[in-house]
Simulated assay, not measured.
Amino acid sequence: MQRNVHRWVAALAACLVLLVAPAAFAAERYALLIGNAEYEDAEPLENPLNDIDLVGEALERVEFDVTRVTDADHLGMLSALNNFTRLAEKAEDPVLFVYFSGYAVQIDGDNFLLPVDASGRTVTGLRNRSLPVSEITKTLRGLGKGLKVVLFDAAHENPFLTLRDIPEGLAEPKDAAGVHYAYAATPGTAYDYEGTPISAFASAFVDAISIPGIVLEDAFRKTGEIVKERSKGKQETWQSDADYGKFALSPKDDKVDEAEIAFYEFAALADNREAYDRYLGRYPEGIFASVAKRKIDLLARRFSGDREVSDEMPYLTVSNDRGDPCGRITFGDYAQDRRLSDVYKDGQLVLIDVR
């Protein structure tokens, strides 16, 4: 009898180990984020440092060990990749993310990420003083068998007008086996980010991965939809492979309010401080609260001289204070009996608050 009891206890212990193993021994997560903005031989960029701040904080919330590198020269980018390799190789089959925001070019079908000291005098010189994407691919393949994702937020136009032989946009990776690539714009295309403190790709990606339990393929699909909508179809994201094995960055939460997600997605499409404030007013402790607050902070840095640039989104309240089933329409802070077409243009984004 005692022997049977011991066997039963041992079997129960084994079952408990199996139950806790996925959580206890979950793959370690590492992310390398590079943001280059202050270029010496090209027009400085406004968004890269904000991009890696936003993306980095979002990845830290889902338990990534994040390494940030800003305004790196050629030697600095090589050093950052080497240091990241030494950090990640200590783990067994880690999940790896590499995110780059800045200028990148394609030369003879190969992609190169540009350091801040990249020279646009000759194509040969540019190639020799840039970080080839093939080097990143080679490095990641040597770091176990875990998921590897590379994000290029580099849809800028060619920054060197003297080098006319450089095609627009990035080329498709020649060998993407084992590595998932996601571009802010489809290969061979570029999009002007001028005047944007946060890139649409970074902003949308952070919004998507903040949804509890969302699998990565759905997160990238949602990212692409937001980017396309905000650019009015001028910018479309691209992926080398959309099969991420149903990998989710965070556990699913059955208590998530779908209405809150829809409300925030509308605010994200407007992408201005007023819209995010409206979200925080309704969901001060919501699942996107930290993202909304951070975006408000970053958008507040958008100035033109002494005058702040503001693209306020119209706000329409439909109230029903007197029990009128049709409600009473309020435009801004004052009530008027006017048609919507008198106030808003066709296709204009308007936040509608039904109370």
Rank of each mutant, 00 (worst) to 15 (best):
H6C: 09
H6W: 14
A10L: 14
A11D: 09
L16S: 12
A23G: 10
E38N: 15
Y39A: 01
E43G: 02
E43V: 13
P44A: 03
L45F: 09
A58W: 04
V62K: 00
T67I: 01
A72N: 07
A72R: 05
D73W: 10
D73S: 00
D73P: 07
H74M: 10
T85W: 05
T85F: 03
E92T: 13
L96N: 06
F97L: 11
V98Y: 04
A104L: 07
G109E: 01
F112L: 10
D117S: 09
R129C: 09
R129K: 14
S130Q: 01
P132Y: 02
P132T: 03
T139Q: 07
L140Q: 09
G142C: 12
L143R: 06
G144L: 02
G146P: 07
V149A: 01
V149T: 10
L151M: 13
F152T: 08
A155Y: 05
E157G: 14
D165I: 14
I166Q: 02
G169R: 04
E172Q: 14
E172N: 11
A176S: 15
V179Q: 06
T186R: 11
P187W: 00
P187S: 05
D192V: 07
D192E: 03
A202S: 07
F205K: 03
A208I: 00
S210Y: 04
E217N: 13
E217K: 13
E217Q: 14
D218A: 13
T223G: 03
V227A: 02
K228I: 03
R230D: 05
G233N: 02
K234Y: 11
E236W: 03
Q239L: 15
S240C: 02
F247V: 13
K252E: 14
D254A: 13
D257V: 08
I261E: 02
F263H: 08
E265I: 10
A268W: 02
L269Y: 04
A270R: 08
R273Q: 10
R273K: 12
Y276E: 07
Y276A: 00
Y283E: 00
G286A: 01
I287S: 07
A289T: 09
A292Y: 02
I296N: 00
A300T: 12
A300W: 01
Y315M: 11
N320Q: 10
R339W: 12
K345R: 10
Q348S: 10
V350A: 06
I352R: 11
